[in-house]
Design a protein around this nucleic acid. Structure first.
Length: 425
RNA sequence: GGAGGGAUGGCUGAGUGGACGAAAGCACCGGUCUUGAAAACCGGCGACCCGCAAGGGUCCGUGGGUUCGAAUCCCACUCCCUCCGCCA
């Protein structure tokens, strides 16, 4: 949520920021008009309340000294009715204003490249060599089904298309990777591990910015008015919702959760296999930081995600997303993409974003600065990393001519010493 | 699912119609003392909104109601705790 003061004081900068995203900016004028209306009403109602408070105190005194206050009480009753009517107007304008502001996306940071679509994203670095094969590398679907570790057909029968099913060493590999990543973030990077609910209420979804705009992209439990999380960012960030954080910043949290996305509108795209699915596992990192440090924290967050891939010996590149491609709540975002030879393409496995105070304002997450004054924290999060695509990359990069897969050395201890997924006899 | 109890500031906790934004303690900040620290003592210390300011307003789980006036009375809801039942 944008600070209303920011809209009042520099509406042009907000308009420019919205245009850079390709978003409409008439909303700025609507907000300013409602804001003006609201303040006018407030002045009126507060003057009357002030009078009521003063007179009511007098009535108390007069009654104690035994005087008759019937007349003035009647007057006050009328004043009370006027106040009630004005209060209702204020509430009405307030909620309209609030709802409107909730629909406005964050303003891109000055360092976010300007551009309307992914073609304007900037590759900031690459790491590792994309592997050369002396045979035609297969895709993970063909590999995984032959190895007996992926079963899309049975998964579709028990649920529907787009829900993956891992089996045997495939599911063990995914479990090992979760453990590997969590251990790294907890032991090396200083994150506190959390195992949160994966179903949350509407306030939480609004706090991180999924609601109101992304309602159609999420799975919903209408009987209970709850939602299935599209990312662990939601429960983890909402850990401090409506709190003044009473511990030193920064606070780092990491969580493994399944994630659920309807991918409405993505139907029809070529998305065979595990690359775009309705349910996937992910290890997420979330930071609550002092605003002065948030851009440094973004770089180290990105570094934490990169280290996972470096340890696994996978080739990746880092993209700085342009203003038209960053998410609703983000001010700046890096994506990390893994090379997947079977796809002959890069796969996004991590998004590391600085939301500045956008989520903190919505969710009411504050801290006390060195003067004891309450301020909104800055929140950040990044995938560290998303699993099915990581598994895809490991399978496709590690494949041998005979269809077996050699696993990265770093994961072998987590596999109980198993270093290869063999073809079934 | 049944019965009962509860929700007040960063925390604990007093407050049953007017002088209560709210006692007290803890925590925190500043000071005195100390070589330094601790202790002790003194002082400060809720959040949010409107306003250039002076100042004003709102907030005691949430939403309604009664009243000139509500933390306090009434209604509904939410959440938490205890016991019983069921259950992974």
């Amino acid at each position: 949520m944008l600070d209303i003061k920011r809209l009042r004081e520099c509406p042009d900068a907000v308009r420019t920021g919205l245009s850079a995203r390709g978003a409409e900016n008439e909303v700025v004028d609507q907000v300013l008009e409602l804001d003006r209306e609201r303040r006018e009403l407030l002045t009126q109602v507060e003057t009357r309340k002030s009078e009521r408070n003063r007179v009511s105190k007098d009535i108390g005194k007069l009654k104690k000294s035994g005087e008759d206050t019937t007349g003035v009480q009647l007057e006050m009753r009328e004043l009370g009715a006027r106040i009630a009517a004005l209060d209702e107007d204020v509430r009405d304008v307030d909620s309209r204003l609030h709802e409107l502001i909730l629909t406005i996306p964050n303003i891109p940071s000055a360092t976010t490249p300007v551009g309307l679509d992914e073609s304007a994203n900037v590759v900031v670095r690459s790491h590792g060599e994309t592997k050369a094969f002396d045979f035609e590398p297969k895709g993970h679907v063909e590999l995984g089904e032959a190895l007996g570790i992926l079963d899309f057909h049975r998964a579709a029968r028990m649920t529907s298309a787009g829900f993956p099913l891992l089996l045997g060493l495939g599911s063990r590999l995914q479990r090992a990777l979760i453990q590997f990543m969590l251990d790294m973030h907890v032991d090396k990077h200083g994150y506190t591990e959390m195992l949160p609910p994966i179903v949350v209420n509407s306030k939480s979804m609004t706090g991180t910015g999924q609601l109101p705009k992304m309602a159609d992209d999420m799975y919903r439990l209408p009987e209970d008015d709850l939602w299935m999380i599209p990312t662990a960012e939601v429960p983890v960030t909402n850990y401090f919702r409506e709190e003044i954080i009473d511990r030193p910043l920064p606070v780092y949290m990491t969580a493994f959760t399944p994630c659920f996305r309807r991918e409405a509108g993505a139907a029809g795209k070529v998305n065979r296999g595990m690359i775009r699915v309705h349910q996937f596992d992910k290890v997420e990192m979330v930071k609550f930081v002092d605003p002065a440090t948030s851009y440094d924290e973004l770089e180290s967050l990105l570094g934490n995600a990169e280290e996972v891939l470096q340890e696994l010996g996978l080739a990746y590149r880092v993209l700085e997303l342009c203003s038209g491609d960053i998410s609703f709540a983000a001010a700046k975002c890096y994506d990390i993409e893994l090379w997947a030879p079977g796809q002959n393409d890069w796969l996004e496995v991590s998004s590391c974003s600085n939301f500045e105070d956008f989520q903190a304002r919505r969710a009411g997450i504050r801290y006390r600065d060195s003067n004891g004054k309450t301020q909104f924290v800055h929140t950040l999060n990044g995938s560290g990393v998303a699993l099915p695509r990581l598994v895809v990359a490991i399978l496709e990069n590690g494949q041998q001519a005979d269809g077996s897969v050699i696993l990265p050395a770093a994961i072998v201890p987590y596999m109980g010493g198993i270093d290869r997924i063999p073809m079934p006899a």
